[in-house]
Simulated assay, not measured.
Amino acid sequence: MLSYVAGRLAAIVALAFGISGLVFLMLRLIPGDPVMALLGTQAANPEVVERLRRQLGLDESMASQYVTWLGNLFRGDFGYSYGQQRPVSELIAANFPATLQLTVCALFLSVLLGLAIGIVAALKRNRAADTLGMGLALALMSIPSFWLGLLLILLFAVTWPIFDVVGGTGFKGVVLPAVTLALGTVGFNARFIRSSVLSAQTQKHVITARAKGLSRATVFLRHVLRNSLLPILTVVGIQVGNLLSGTVVVETVFSRPGLGRLLVDAILSKDYLTVQAVVLIIAVIYAGANFVVDLCYPLLDPRIARR
């Protein structure tokens, strides 16, 4: 077990290095110059441009810039934001709680609605409820989150002013963004859960439990649902990454503070260090969530711990 944990932690470190290098390279290959974006009308003066480029370390080679950034990163220094004139660590600390709140709420709604639709569809297989549930799941998977967000704003913040329109972090401000973010993943969860429940219902121990005369509710709760939770746990780990990436669109649509909106603003302003830090943090959180999911497997299936 210890060797497995050590191997997974090493994989997370390797992933962080790979992501950091890839993002660093991609940002430098994208057309545009952060110095020109910062100076604006003063960019016509070559001396000013060269002086600022030297101050920001952009006159060095790409390899030298990357090594310098990694060295600062090991010391806990994410660098200084060009566009917002603040340390990147301060920007992340100020925006991360809002993204965490949105992601947790959306994950809860996504798993809850996905479980409800998937279980009902599996128990009513090939019936009207199954067809309706899977049709709804397909529709939710097909709706772009930015369009859904605008539609919810129009309905529940403009036509019926029930929730805050934009920018809120309280209960009324998080409902519409969380629903928008969650509905995009509910369809996938529902289809996966339906398949998992149907597969568990055909297991030999489930058939034996039914033959013993146990009630349908007892068989489902004790045998079917428990055996369905293992693959569902895998989905939860995957959805953390999907929801974190989805905050980029949702936070922008709702003008909500968070890492997603910070990332969009940093990309538009060519703020290299902020983009690198935010993408790296999202990648590490995604890998860490899947690592925790893997550690939870033996709790649901003790046979895994004995392998």
Rank of each mutant, 00 (worst) to 15 (best):
S228C: 03
S64Y: 02
F17S: 09
S3T: 13
F17E: 12
N126R: 11
V250H: 02
F188Q: 14
R216N: 13
E47C: 04
V49A: 02
A178I: 07
T274W: 01
M26W: 00
F192N: 12
L138Y: 02
A157P: 00
V275T: 08
V279G: 01
T99G: 06
L259H: 04
R194A: 02
D271H: 10
W69E: 15
K172G: 09
G18S: 11
P231D: 12
L136N: 08
G32H: 02
Q85H: 12
P97G: 15
I30F: 00
L181Q: 09
L22Y: 02
R86E: 15
T41Y: 01
G57W: 00
L140Q: 13
F220Y: 06
R210S: 09
I238S: 06
S195F: 00
L22E: 10
R51N: 08
S215Y: 02
S245D: 11
A283D: 01
F96I: 15
A287P: 03
E251M: 07
G288Q: 07
L109T: 05
S110E: 14
A157R: 05
I238F: 02
R210N: 10
Q276E: 10
V253P: 05
L299G: 07
A98Y: 03
A10T: 13
A139C: 04
R256E: 09
Y286A: 15
Q101H: 11
S145V: 15
A106C: 05
Q101P: 10
S228Y: 01
S245C: 05
R51M: 04
P302R: 14
N290I: 10
L2E: 14
I193T: 14
P298F: 03
S255D: 02
L280P: 00
V219P: 02
H223T: 15
L100Q: 05
A37Q: 12
A14Y: 00
P302Q: 14
G7C: 06
P87K: 13
L263D: 12
A157W: 00
G184S: 07
S245T: 14
A178Q: 13
R125Q: 07
M36E: 12
R307L: 11
G246A: 11
